[in-house]
Design a protein around this nucleic acid. Structure first.
Length: 815
RNA sequence: GCCCGGGUGGUGAAAUCGGCAGACACAAAGGACUUAAAAUCCUUUGCUCCGCAAGGGGCGUGUGGGUUCAAGUCCCACCCCGGGCACCA
């Protein structure tokens, strides 16, 4: 058969048409006959239009899924859902919309884009989780959490993005700005808000990280650990002078408490307004509360004022002035601190500024106690406690423990653990998102919507102004509803849920997407979960990945799953950057893959993006090598098409060489898949094999030629599905490539029979000798010493030592 | 400031366990085929020095030290780039 030119358009059109409606292709067998493997992908936000970052994410996951399939696993691979931009005419709403509220038109558009890119997708499942019906299950979970006290409403100071005109969770505030509007500073507002009690599992998140270690990237684990921010310390009450009240402080260094020379309250602390009992103090306090520069802690100059009041140190009995300071955080610990300037940098800075005494009480283990008057910097290490009454002479660590115990014994405090993690504020004043299923009644209070009335569906024809309160509040038909308990007129809750609620559990529903009575059937989920492999951007490290860990525990406590961790393995791919900046819609530096796909095809596009760099590494976008990938595919295609019917007796030497290369390549590519996903080296190995086959082409026997072609095509399958499928068919083989068995390397065929061993003299390569594989140490040494170049080099030198590694190297050390 | 990554040719990168640095590509230059172009194929390509040549020498993985027969890889110190966290008491 003559050689055919590689026509990617024809091939890709043909196979996308054939695959489109073939349900056997991408769907699990689902009869439990094969082991399960669940690949899940999630893109880095912000997403926007389809761009190269998505192609990279999908190419990685798709290659893995195809490989696992060929290795005999039944693979569930629904693919990421937040990837695809909406058509331009929908741009106005697409900006803030969410997949769960997408329309069927939106989905059709996504489907078209994905099909064109040649990514497998199980549309039934995706469409199902996008239907408004999906609200029902968010609401169902909400009601279950409400019953268990895991959902609650409280009035609190919350983050407010003026651009979104909505509340944000702590996790969604990035550098003091909204995560979707990176230049809009977040404001603080006092509002009635709904929360999920994520802190119910705080210690579990930390403890269970043991299960994730080695399976999740270390930096993600560290980021979560820092976010949770556990610190062990002591709470202690300072009794207020002239009142029965106390001020409770939290400290991790109670061993320094004899050095506390003042108390500092956060301006928002309840006691601050109480103690600022003159007009002047009240004005100072108000100015401090309103001070916008406090949002930028990096450049904030510490400032404060004395309230004129005093409290008593519970340990030393010392009279301690009470100050208010702009740097003390209300949201951490108790909102009040004891300032120990001698042993804390921040306190030092503050106290020096206002002339407050510096009183050292810890001396370095091998040093002397510092002089507070002349101290240039605080001593923050552990040491020996001094000038601290009965505790003097103890080591810091011992004193900490014993002093904590004393607080507990005498009732003025206790050992305490403080976390940085706060509950998840889920109220949003947005149109998109699941309506919160409760009704406010004057006489009954907050009444849950009865389960039979779910789902509470978003009304249509809502005017989205993007300003003020929830747009739902302006829809009387939605708001005015009778109380389910007493029947009197009530008001429906108009807040909707954070869309991270959707992403916390949607992937569970993929395995039971048509269930009409439950979010999913526990028995159907059991064989698939936890997710074996999650592939996504590191940007989700604390938002989505922490929320999912919370949700999974809630489901566990509801008896729906039997495990706490939803994702067994996490792989964070590198970002695709353009001129050093991460591609994102907001920066406007997106490279659309359309052009490349049109010109070179989806297969080339995948090969290109996988070949450019290992997947965990960031890659700067540079298209210059894409033609090389196209050339490579063309070379393979031409080789296959022109050799299909070739009959040749062949040359045994060439056959052996080809077989060796084939089996070496299988070993290499398989190892890359199993160990490290460095697809750039896998593809390089396939290129080497192709080059070798080109050079041996004329001398190959019919049988080996056939084996070579088939193996090459099978191994190309995960990376270039269209082209390899086409070649498979042209070779007269039936069925889908992904239903074929992954080739197995035969070590006997892969083994080299002779090998070139470098001979070094004093560590520098001076010659090479070709010897039989496995030649003994002694024999190899003899061969090396007999080599004429070596003999010449050794002339007049004295051999000190010879290092011989069979099959690897000889190093002769001379003097 | 603290915690992670990373620094290798003109470019993307490879070297997986301390053992031949630069696999595989891109780009570039030269050649074959062609009226020409495209496509394809072949050759050269880390820097540098000696030589007409065949060939040979030296240097080389951010910098400076160290360990070792042997270091891109291990140890110490430092510089630079990227990312995350940060008045968390």
């Amino acid at each position: 058969m003559p050689e055919k030119p590689y026509d990617h358009q024809e091939i890709e059109l043909k196979w996308s048409a054939r695959w489109k409606d073939d349900p056997t292709l991408y769907r699990a067998v689902d009869d439990g006959s094969r082991p399960r493997y669940y690949v899940l992908e999630m893109l880095p936000y912000p997403s926007g239009r389809l761009h190269m970052g998505h192609v990279r994410n999908y190419s990685i996951g798709d290659a893995l899924a195809r490989y696992q399939w060929m290795r005999g696993y039944d693979v569930l691979h629904p693919m990421g859902w937040d990837a695809f931009g909406l058509p331009a005419e929908n741009a106005a709403i697409s900006r803030n919309t969410h997949p769960r509220t997408w329309t069927m038109e939106n989905i059709a558009h996504m489907k078209k884009q994905l099909d064109r890119m040649g990514f497998a997708y199980d549309w039934d499942r995706e469409v199902s989780t996008c239907e408004p019906e999906y609200y029902r299950w968010n609401q169902w979970f909400f009601l279950k959490m409400l019953e268990r006290g895991l959902a609650y409403r409280k009035n609190s100071l919350v983050n407010w993005c003026p651009e979104c005109a909505t509340v944000l969770a702590n996790e969604q505030v990035v550098n003091g700005c909204c995560w979707r509007h990176e230049t809009t500073p977040v404001e603080q507002r006092q509002l009635e808000q709904w929360f999920f009690r994520t802190t119910a599992y705080t210690q579990e998140y930390l403890d269970d990280m043991k299960l994730l270690e080695g399976h999740w990237p270390e930096r993600v684990i560290t980021m979560q650990r820092n976010w949770i921010g556990r610190s062990e310390g002591t709470e202690a009450d300072f009794a207020m002078e002239g009142s029965a009240d106390r001020i409770r402080v939290f400290t991790t260094r109670v061993d320094t408490i004899y050095g506390a020379t003042c108390l500092i309250l956060a301006p928002e602390h309840r006691k601050s307004s109480e103690l600022c009992d003159t007009a002047d103090l009240a004005a100072q306090l108000k100015a401090m509360v309103d001070d916008q520069s406090r949002k930028d802690p990096e450049n904030l100059e510490k400032a404060g004022f004395f309230t004129g009041h005093y409290a008593t140190n519970p340990y030393s009995g010392q009279r301690t002035p009470i100050w208010v300071g702009n740097f003390v955080l209300m949201g951490y610990g108790t909102g009040a601190i004891m300032a120990v300037p001698a042993h804390d940098e921040r306190d030092f800075e503050f106290c020096r500024k206002y002339g407050i005494a510096v009183r050292p009480v810890i001396r370095p283990v091998d040093g002397a106690l510092a002089d507070g008057e002349t101290m240039a910097a605080p001593f923050e290490e552990y040491g020996i406690v001094e000038d601290s009454g009965e505790w003097s002479g103890l080591a810091s660590a011992v004193a900490r423990k014993q002093m904590s115990q004393r607080a507990d014994d005498e009732g003025f405090g206790k050992a305490a653990i403080t976390y940085r993690l706060k509950d998840w504020g889920v109220s949003r004043q947005r149109y998109w998102g699941t309506p919160i299923p409760v009704i406010h009644c004057k006489s009954c209070g907050v009444v849950p919507v009865p389960e039979k009335d779910l789902p509470v569906v978003l009304p249509l024809n809502v005017e989205v102004t993007g300003k003020g309160s929830s747009p739902l509040a302006n829809v009387p038909e939605f708001v005015n509803v009778d109380c389910p308990k007493c029947g009197e007129p009530g008001r429906r809750e108009t807040d909707t849920m954070d869309t991270f609620v959707d992403s916390s559990w949607y992937f569970f529903r993929y395995v039971d997407h048509a269930n009409a009575t439950m979010p999913f059937d526990a028995a159907k989920v059991a064989p698939w979960f936890p997710v074996d492999q999650y592939i996504g951007g590191v940007t989700h490290a604390i938002l989505h990945l922490l929320y999912s860990r919370f949700w999974c525990r809630v489901m566990r406590d509801l008896g729906m799953v039997s495990f706490a961790e939803p994702f067994k393995n996490l792989f964070t791919q590198g970002m695709v950057q353009l001129n050093g900046q991460t591609m994102s819609k907001s920066k406007g530096n997106i490279v659309d893959p359309d052009e490349m796909t049109q010109k070179f095809g989806a297969d080339t596009c995948r090969l290109f993006v996988l070949f450019a760099a290992p997947p965990e590494k960031d890659m700067d976008w540079n298209e210059s090598s894409v033609e090389g990938q196209y050339r490579f595919l063309s070379r393979v295609y031409r080789f296959v098409t022109r050799n299909i019917d070739v009959v040749n007796e062949g040359n045994p030497d060439a056959d052996r060489k080809a077989l060796r290369k084939i089996h070496q390549t299988i070993a290499k590519v398989t190892a890359d898949f199993d160990n490290r996903w460095h697809f750039n080296t896998s593809i390089a190995a396939l290129m080497e094999l192709t080059n070798e086959l080109y050079s041996l082409e004329a001398s190959l026997s019919t049988d080996v030629r056939r084996q070579a072609m088939e193996t090459l095509v099978l191994m190309l399958g995960p990376f270039a599905p269209y082209a390899s499928q086409e070649m498979w068919e042209q070779m007269g083989r039936a069925g889908a490539i992904i239903r074929q068995t992954w080739p197995v390397s035969d070590p006997d065929l892969a083994r080299e029979d002779s090998i070139e061993v470098p001979v070094q003299i004093n560590g520098k390569v001076r010659s090479r000798v070709t010897v039989a594989l496995g030649l003994s140490k002694d024999d190899l040494e003899k061969v090396a010493l007999a080599d004429e170049k070596v003999v010449a080099m050794l002339d007049g030198k004295q051999i000190v030592k010879i290092v011989v590694l069979p099959d690897r190297l000889v190093n002769i050390v001379v003097r």
